[in-house]
């Protein structure tokens, strides 16, 4: 649906976006992730046709953005980063104006504006001027603006920025709802948000794509070389444990970790007997079964056994740091 080829953008001599190529399919929710200044906003602005790429092409539904700007703008709904609106207009007037420009026939304008105000929770502020609204409400006006003509493609630049947790949940739900049928592209630097909402994540750093894939696959593949397993045992001594577990193939290190002071529990005596361990395994295979079998053969009491989940956080951190080192 969207085909981006070697997209590059220079600001004078500074290269903000460096040869990005992307294919985005219909119905995908794509999260554009990256640290500040990575080129997210620039990329989105080029997709909307607001910025002209220094080189490279953008095709949407086989239409080149240079040759068919109007058709493409009809297809796209866009929420810019800071939702800059006409502060003096009433919300209702503003949405009506957008409806007119989006060529919604006069008869359908009223119902459409009403639907959107319900969807975005603007019903009670329709008669207020936009300048009076809070940041969160402003963002919702922006969302209503973007969704006015039920666009095929929704581009949202940091849609949840400056919102409170409840509003973030709402916006995420709206995005997911729209994403069932439409293509949604949004940028964020909040990882949990991308993880919660996206089908696919593209991580960019310094204008380049450093990772691109389904959220699940990214989490599995772009992993670290080792996996960490946390164990809590009772009725066991560290030396014994080491003797028993060390022979298991693939376990590289066994450390005893002192519990956090606040984890000592109310009766300190009991926790003394507990042993907190951290095992470091190679990530080429799952060792959990072997470990469990070994522990079962002893008379230790297994209190906790967990594999540290590979979070996007760590992937993101690794990828962006790696790239920065290379440069």
């Amino acid at each position: 649906m969207i085909h981006v080829d070697n997209l590059t953008k220079f600001y004078d001599h500074f290269c903000a976006v460096d040869r990005i190529s992307l294919d985005i399919h219909k119905g995908e929710i794509l999260g554009l992730l990256g640290p500040n200044g990575a080129g997210k906003t620039t990329t989105l602005k080029m997709l909307t046709g607001y910025f002209r790429p220094s080189s490279g092409t953008i095709e949407i539904e086989d239409l080149n953005i240079d040759d068919h700007p109007l058709e493409i703008k009809q297809m796209i709904g866009y929420l810019p980063e800071s939702s800059p609106f006409y502060k003096d207009l009433l919300v209702y007037d503003y949405l009506n104006y957008v409806a007119k420009i989006r060529s919604i026939p006069p008869r359908e304008r009223q119902p459409r504006v009403k639907d959107l105000s319900e969807l975005c929770g603007l019903g009670h502020v329709m008669h207020k001027s936009i300048g009076e609204l809070s940041k969160g409400l402003n963002q919702r006006v922006g969302l209503a603006h973007a969704m006015m003509r039920d666009p095929e493609i929704l581009i949202l630049d940091e849609p949840t920025q400056g919102l409170d947790p409840n509003q973030i949940m709402e916006i995420r739900n709206i995005i997911r709802k729209i994403g069932e049928e439409k293509t949604v592209i949004f940028s964020t630097h909040i990882l949990s948000e991308a993880e919660a909402t996206c089908d696919r994540i593209v991580i960019i750093n310094r204008g380049r794509i450093v990772a691109d894939g389904k959220t699940e696959i990214l989490k599995q593949s772009a992993g670290q070389p080792s996996i960490t397993i946390n164990l809590t045992l009772a009725n066991a001594a560290f030396d014994d444990v080491r003797k028993v577990l060390k022979p298991i193939e693939g376990i590289e290190a066994i450390e005893s970790v002192h519990p956090q002071p606040d984890e000592t529990g109310h009766d300190g005596s009991k926790t003394d007997a507990r042993l907190f361990l951290r095992l470091t395994c190679r990530s080429d295979a799952d060792r959990r079964e072997a470990i469990y079998q070994q522990i079962k053969a002893t008379d230790w009491i297994l209190l906790e056994f967990s594999q540290q989940a590979q979070t996007l956080e760590t992937i993101f951190h690794d990828l962006t740091r790696q790239a920065n080192k290379e440069n």
Binding site: T48, G49, Y50, L70, K73, Y78, P84, Y86, I101, R102
Partner: peptide, 14 residues
């Protein structure tokens, strides 16, 4: 200065 020019240019207007 407000940035709403961006909105104007991303709507279907020549």
């Amino acid at each position: 200065s407000r940035g709403s020019y961006e909105l104007l240019r991303t709507m279907p207007l020549t």
